[in-house]
């Protein structure tokens, strides 16, 4: 199945951070690739949303919603860079 991209997380990320997060830059800890959240490969059909590196499949972000709470993990990304809003 084809993954979507990080644009699909814009709504939830906006709820979490009260600003646009799709332009946030990052570096993948798996292969060193740099990019923006919007470019991540996003698998949104599972129990949670999984965003992976487009080159090496490392899990960059995991988002899940449970009992009215969002849970966010960032196991595979570093150097988050956010443009001033």
């Amino acid at each position: 199945m084809h993954p979507l991209d990080g644009n699909a997380m814009a709504g939830v990320m906006h709820d979490l951070f009260a600003r646009d997060m799709t332009t946030m830059g990052y570096q993948c800890t798996g292969c060193g690739k740099t990019g923006a959240v919007a470019e991540m490969a996003v698998y949104a059909s599972g129990p949670g949303t999984v965003a992976r590196c487009r080159d090496c499949d490392t899990i960059l972000l995991m988002l899940s919603e449970r009992r009215g709470m969002y849970c966010l993990d960032a196991p595979g990304m570093t150097h988050a860079i956010l443009p001033l809003a």
């Binding site: 199945m1 698998y43 059909s45 129990p47 949670g48 999984v50 992976r52 499949d57």
Partner: peptide, 9 residues
């Protein structure tokens, strides 16, 4: 039969 996936097939 929804397809659920956390990564590439």
């Amino acid at each position: 039969f929804p397809v659920l996936s956390a990564g590439p097939t």
